[in-house]
């Protein structure tokens, strides 16, 4: 499956590094990155390929990964959201 990771916040050095390091810990492969500005906020969109999520040798549920990423975002003043790609597909495709 694919996941959409969005990061909204003030632009600063190290955002991509922060998110990709975090993804690496779970074995998440980032396949695409784009960035834009949404209503004066820096917005980064990452597309990630997720086959299985593992951290420190243990399997992690997708919902826990999403929650953990949101928490990492909060610590750094960023709004990080991880969504299953299906929400975007369902909403915008017939």
């Amino acid at each position: 499956m694919k996941a959409v990771i969005t990061v909204v916040g003030r632009d600063r050095v190290g955002i991509i590094a922060l998110v990709s390091t975090e993804c690496q810990k779970y074995g998440v492969n980032i396949v695409d990155i784009s960035q834009t500005v949404m209503r004066e906020y820096f917005t980064m969109i990452m597309l990630a390929e997720i086959d299985r999520l593992e951290k420190d040798g243990k399997t992690v549920a997708f919902s826990d990964f999403a929650e953990e990423m949101a928490n990492v975002g909060k610590e750094h003043g960023l709004d990080i959201r991880v969504m299953h790609e299906d929400i975007v597909n369902t909403m915008h495709r017939i």
Partner: peptide
């Protein structure tokens, strides 16, 4: 393929 505008709209 996912479209950036669609993703942004969903997030917004």
């Amino acid at each position: 393929m996912l479209n950036t505008q669609d993703i942004l709209e969903t997030i917004r």
